[in-house]
Design a protein around this nucleic acid. Structure first.
Lengths: 208, 208
DNA sequence: TGTCCGTGTGTACAAGTGTTCACTTATGTG
DNA sequence: CACATAAGTGAACACTTGTACACACGGACA
């Protein structure tokens, strides 16, 4: 039999998660992946799967957790790089797009999971988005750019912002990763979306 | 052998499409459906599938076409029922939600397809959404509520509106169909999203 | 009336599926 | 060093899957 090569602990686990993401990155839908398929892609025997996950839903849930880390990294970078308020939207969108490109499979998985098969994964992703929106609201509060909005209205605004960006994600993931022209179009459009929303927020008082 | 019961032409075809939608309505993801599974649900022998569709992607494409009809019906009803401009948003959202409930499986399929496995289905749904947005823009132009916007800015606004509503769809489809409280929350939130967007559009000139 | 042809049916098969089982081995802890 | 344990392996199982083939029927049209 082939030698058993155990390296670092948790290595196979990671290989399996990466394999699932790789398949998603190749255009497959997470819901259509099977255990054997994933283990094959990972170069591991099918039985190994059960050492780390109970089933594919379980693997999906653990991917959601890692997705949370990716999002947090992105937030940190945005906080560090967006210094001047006047370019806030442009720069944030740019950072978002570059992260989405760098972690294409992850974001693909996220976009799929929003309407996915597993209720738990769905709820997990939704919860990550809520967290993201609330962090955004905190940042904006801290920057005192939106003092005229009630907390509730600010939360709503940020929710809408996150949703719009998430939807742009599906545009972005639909075009090939090196189609610079299309990507630039998406960047511009997303930026204008957010500008429109913030113009609305700025005048919300009068309409609320 | 069981009698062969041929009824109306195209009946089996419809049964297969309905069967796929039914499975989607039960929580399955379209990408994970198989031919045998669908024919089983339709009460038809697997071989019959090939008389009407080349594969599951083909069936998906034909579902997108029918989805177009559903959307057009919804638009027609909205046009007929939204008479006074001041309640335009509220009433449109209400009509949308009632249609989404009445055609739950269809809209579930649409939400799934946006990040689905088949590029063609994806593009089809996206195209339906673009059409919807452009029709909305035409209606608004006709009502002369947004004369200060350029055509391009109006298109962008409508695009954002349609996206926001589509995203609310995933909220709506995530809650049980008779959870009136949650549905009401979603209705309110979606309404406020659109109001925020239109406030933004109303003041866009100054920022554009 | 005869003859296509679209559509429905049953059978068959090779390949792929999830999961269980009994096994081996590497490694950290005592 | 001995050993318990986590993590890897191959074989086997009972199913399910997509698809091909030959056949049956019924209505449209000559």
């Amino acid at each position: 039999m082939a030698e058993k090569q155990r390296r670092k602990p948790g290595e196979t686990r990671e290989k399996l998660m990466t394999a699932a993401l790789t398949l998603v990155g190749k255009g497959r839908h997470f819901a259509s992946l099977g255990i054997r398929e994933v283990t094959r892609q990972a170069g591991v025997v099918p039985t190994s799967f059960y050492r780390h996950f109970r089933n594919m839903d379980d693997l999906g849930l653990q991917l959601v957790d890692e997705l949370g880390l990716v999002l947090r990294r992105m937030m940190r970078e945005a906080r560090a790089n967006v210094l001047q308020a006047d370019k806030l939207i442009e720069e944030s969108v740019a950072i978002f797009i570059s992260h989405a490109q760098a972690n294409r499979s992850f974001f693909l998985f996220m976009a799929q999971g929003l309407a996915g098969e597993s209720r738990a994964v769905q709820e997990g992703i939704r919860s990550e988005m809520r967290f993201f929106a609330s962090e955004l609201a905190n940042d904006l509060r801290r920057m005192r750019l939106v003092d005229h909005l009630t907390d509730q209205d600010l939360d709503m605004t940020c929710d809408l912002v996150v949703r719009s960006v998430a939807f742009s994600l599906t545009d972005l993931l639909g075009v090939s990763a090196d189609d610079d022209y299309q990507i630039e179009q998406i960047r511009k459009r997303t930026t204008r979306f957010l500008q429109l929303i913030f113009v609305g927020a700025a005048h919300w008082q009068s309409a609320g």
